[in-house]
Design a protein around this nucleic acid. Structure first.
Length: 865
DNA sequence: GCGTCACATGTTTTT
DNA sequence: CATGTGACGC
């Protein structure tokens, strides 16, 4: 039982905050439980408005998480619901953890019982495990990762005799993912779309993929929600059970929800009493316009909401008497940056329409940034059309203006930022309070190189998630095969890792066998080694493997799961494989494997570990060494720093040409939101950079300043000279175009001007048509992606990792002493691998790396090899 | 089955 | 430029 015993105490609200809602509100605001003190009136209203739908539009830095957690505390302390009756969803594990943590602090003890606080996927997965049989699964189903998905799809493509060169499995995976994001089961995919892939086979492939998943007792990420929706629709009694259970629903980052998540929420948020449950049945095409046909089967009675829908949603119908429960969504339409991943900004724009009678509360009081920064961010975002509209305010000082610095090329940009950082550091500030936010991860390289040379500690945030790493997936695959011998995908993954002489031919053979006898791959292997169908070498090696797994399974009964994992990794030769590997990141991989084994301790047994790991595993914070943070704008969402560097504000890069080409105006707006997110990360200083020349794929091209620069308010921005030395005239004069005078940069190009942005408002308008000089035309060509021939699946083409950005937790303590290294020493560097010392200058070494070439490095970055 | 070479292919990435 | 993928030859 959670009860706030703290006697209400009078707490004064900071007096600059006008009490919204008059005297009554003020009276309420000044008394109340302790946890309410310190909230501003809007926050307080968001916390205390418990009944009915509430949308909290929480701008950047306005205390969103605080509102969410306080609201939960309030619900509990008011006795309105028990912990298990509150459904609280976030997008990331990190956010969920953060909420749990803050809630614990607020309530003064750990929150043992908030079983329904988690990510959409973990909660969806949990529900699905309860009712697995209704989705033709067993409750111990495995959750597939992307690799597994692709491998499976490849097999299906092969079976269908489809050229997987022309129609890559990854593309299909992307399509299916997209459909699932939109809540579409195979039968609901608009025929046009289904036909686009592989000459009409797309829909069929999706269907057979789903079938295969059931046979494999597996679900992909999308299924975790989609199958929930299906179950809820087909079994109203079950839905009702959950509706009854969840007295309150809270949603974080609502602007990032996709259609499936939206449907899931809608279903759960209806009051259980409503006899005629409103069941959204299907969402079809119309990319941005989710259509909900409601009513019981066949009942077309669509009580069209007569209200004025914010955005036209043809066919969007909501049953008149669809009482909605206490759902509170928190989000910020101006921070919606995952549209390309299926997020529907419309969900938040449409909230009042979807949840009639909704109360909308705006949090516009920013507690993070200074005046100039906030003004710059606000003006920038004001250029967007599709927004609900908020104006961030601050009580803080004006602070320093946002700076815009031009440099000759990206190298100079990195140099300039490096110097600036050292300057900041000399002023006694922590490197932890400095971040560099880039649009694309390839931009990081230049900074890494520079920082390594300077001996400036940095860390890369983001990058491959822990459980996405090959070594982790391999290790998990071993454990999966032990846990469920029928996990063909896992078995296939590790059958020849490390190399055992079991290649494609063997695997193909096993597949044939398995299919013929309708047995799992592993069992097929067991059977095949008894025959002489394989060559002796392969046969022996496969026999050993089967025997090993049998042994491990026996050991499992008597061994702690962590020990078992260690044994498996050692005996399989997997650890050894990496030990023998001389590449730069092998050591890190071994470290990750250790970390994996360690993390297993938190789970009761192997089964439990495997069920949760794919949903819960993510990078843990790591050491809190004082270091500069380097990350993409996307991964910066939710973070804040005193000093924020924003390099690369150039047309083509930011806004990204590709987004513009593919998403048109919507894409441009999303890019702008990205800029807004970037600026609002800064507490005290925001520094924007652009370079005139940038190396794109090995080749240099000239670039022009981003149109977003022209959209910044002159009054809050200061143009500075690059530390690198370049300067150009007209610094102070803001004209129609402040970046006109680019001659000093050697560019013949004259400024874009944001009129061009307007001129290109239409779809596909990314193409900059207004090139006024030859120079520009050229780069436009360079930037525009070599658009794939064939149908435009571009937005689904995800894959590939960023450039190698090993998380570089680099410790540099430049000692004044002479180096402990001598010429010709063989050394190892975390990032560059092995190399040989060719020159020594104090503690600065020049090293010829085997792979990375010659680099200057501070000696503390390397160790003797 | 495995290693090597030539080639194409380059955003963003919560689960 | 640099990394990952596919085709070939051993």
């Amino acid at each position: 039982m959670i009860r706030m015993t703290e006697p209400s105490k009078i707490t004064s609200v900071p007096d600059h905050q006008p009490a919204a809602g008059g005297i009554a509100a003020r009276a309420r605001a000044s008394v109340g439980p302790k946890y309410l003190s310190g909230l501003n009136p809007e926050q307080r209203e968001a916390v205390e408005t418990l009944d009915g739908p509430v949308l909290v539009l929480a701008g950047a830095g306005t205390g969103k998480t605080r509102v969410l957690t306080t609201r939960i505390a309030h619900i509990l302390s008011q006795g309105r619901a028990r912990p298990a009756e509150i459904l609280s969803v976030t997008f990331t594990n990190k956010a969920a953890r953060e909420m749990k943590h803050r809630l614990g602090q607020m309530l003064g003890h750990a929150v043992e019982g908030m079983p329904w606080l988690g990510t959409f996927h973990s909660i969806g997965g949990r529900i699905l495990r309860f009712h697995a049989e209704l989705a033709q699964l067993k409750s111990n189903f495995t959750v597939l990762d992307v690799d597994d998905q692709v491998r499976l799809l490849k097999q299906l493509l092969q079976a269908e005799n489809i050229d997987d060169k022309r129609w890559p499995a990854r593309m299909l995976a992307g399509l299916i993912d997209g459909w699932k994001n939109r809540g579409l089961m195979p039968s609901q995919v608009p025929s046009g779309e289904a036909a686009m892939f592989a000459n009409g086979k797309g829909g069929k492939l999706y269907a057979s993929y789903q079938e295969r998943l059931k046979i494999l007792n597996a679900a992909d990420f999308g299924d975790l929600l989609l199958e929930n929706i299906r179950i809820f629709r087909e079994h109203p009694d079950i839905l009702r059970q959950y509706q009854q259970r969840f007295k309150f629903i809270l949603v974080d980052e609502y602007q990032d929800t996709n259609v499936a998540q939206y449907l899931w929420l809608r279903l759960l948020s209806q009051a259980p009493s409503s006899a005629k449950a409103v069941i959204p049945e299907r969402v079809d095409d119309a990319n941005y316009d989710a259509q909900l046909r409601v009513g019981e089967s066949g009942d077309e009675s669509s009580a069209r909401d007569s209200g004025s829908a914010p955005s036209a949603h043809p066919g969007m119908t909501v049953a008149a008497a669809a009482p909605t429960k206490n759902i509170c969504c928190v989000g910020d339409d101006d921070q919606s940056i995952y549209g390309w991943r299926g997020a529907e900004v419309d969900n938040i724009l449409r909230f009042e329409h979807d949840f009639p009678g909704a109360k909308v509360i705006r949090l516009e009081r920013n507690y993070r940034s200074t005046g100039h920064i906030l003004a710059a961010a606000s003006h920038l975002i004001a250029h967007n059309e599709g927004r609900l509209g908020k104006t961030l305010r601050t009580e803080d000082v004006e602070g320093e203006k946002v700076t815009v610095t031009g440099s000759w090329d990206s190298e100079e940009e990195a140099r300039g930022i490096g110097e600036e950082i050292e300057q900041i550091q000399r002023q006694g500030e922590k490197l932890n309070e400095i971040a560099i936010l880039v649009r694309a991860s390839y931009q990081m390289r230049e900074f890494e190189d520079r920082f390594v040379t300077l001996g400036l500690p940095y860390r890369v945030i983001g990058g491959p998630r822990f459980y996405e790493r090959a070594e982790i997936r391999d290790a998990l695959a071993y454990l999966r095969v032990i846990n469920s011998p029928a996990d063909d995908l896992a078995f296939e993954r590790i059958i020849n890792t490390p190399k055992r002489g079991l290649g494609d031919a063997t695997v193909q053979m096993l597949h044939d066998h398995a299919r013929k006898r309708r047995i799992p791959l592993f069992e097929a292997a067991r059977a095949v080694v008894e025959t002489d169908e394989l060559k002796p070498k392969a046969r022996g090696s496969l026999r050993d493997l089967v025997a090993q797994f049998d042994r491990w399974r026996t050991q499992r009964e008597v061994t702690a799961h962590t020990d078992l994992a260690q044994i498996v990794l050692d005996e399989s030769g997997y650890t050894e494989m990496w030990q023998k590997d001389r590449s730069a990141d092998a050591a890190g991989r071994l470290e990750n494997l250790k970390e994996l084994v360690r993390s297993m301790e938190e789970f009761e047994n192997l089964q439990g570990f495997l069920e949760h790991i794919s949903l819960v595993m993510d990078r843990d914070g790591g050491a809190e060494e004082d270091a500069v943070s380097l990350m993409t704008l996307h991964s910066a969402k939710g973070l804040e720093f005193d000093n924020v560097f924003l390099p690369g504000w150039e047309e083509g890069l930011f806004p990204s040409q590709r987004t513009l080409d593919e998403q048109g105006r919507a894409g441009l707006e999303e890019e702008r939101r990205l800029g807004h997110v970037g600026l609002t990360r800064a507490r005290r200083r925001a520094m924007i950079y652009f370079a005139t020349n940038r190396r794109i794929h090995g080749t240099w091209s000239t670039t022009i300043p981003s149109r977003f620069l022209d959209e910044l308010p002159a009054a809050n921005v200061e143009i500075t000279e690059s530390k690198g030395g370049s300067a150009w005239g007209g610094t102070g004069g803001y004209g129609a175009s402040r970046f006109d005078d680019m001659e000093a940069f050697g560019s013949s190009y004259t400024t874009p001007g944001w009129q061009r942005a307007q001129a290109n408002r239409n779809r596909g308008g990314g193409r900059n048509s207004g090139g006024r000089s030859g120079g520009f035309e050229e780069e436009a060509a360079t930037f525009s992606s070599s658009s794939s021939s064939g149908p435009d699946f571009g937005s689904f083409s995800s894959r590939r990792r960023g450039p190698l950005t090993i998380e570089g937790e680099l410790v540099a303590k430049s000692t004044g002493t002479t180096s402990e290294f001598s010429l010709e020493d063989r050394v190892f560097h975390q990032k560059f691998g092995y190399g040989r010392v060719t020159k020594i200058d104090g503690n600065k070494l020049t090293i010829a790396f085997d792979k990375a070439g010659e680099k200057k490095v501070v000696d503390s970055f390397v160790q003797r090899a």
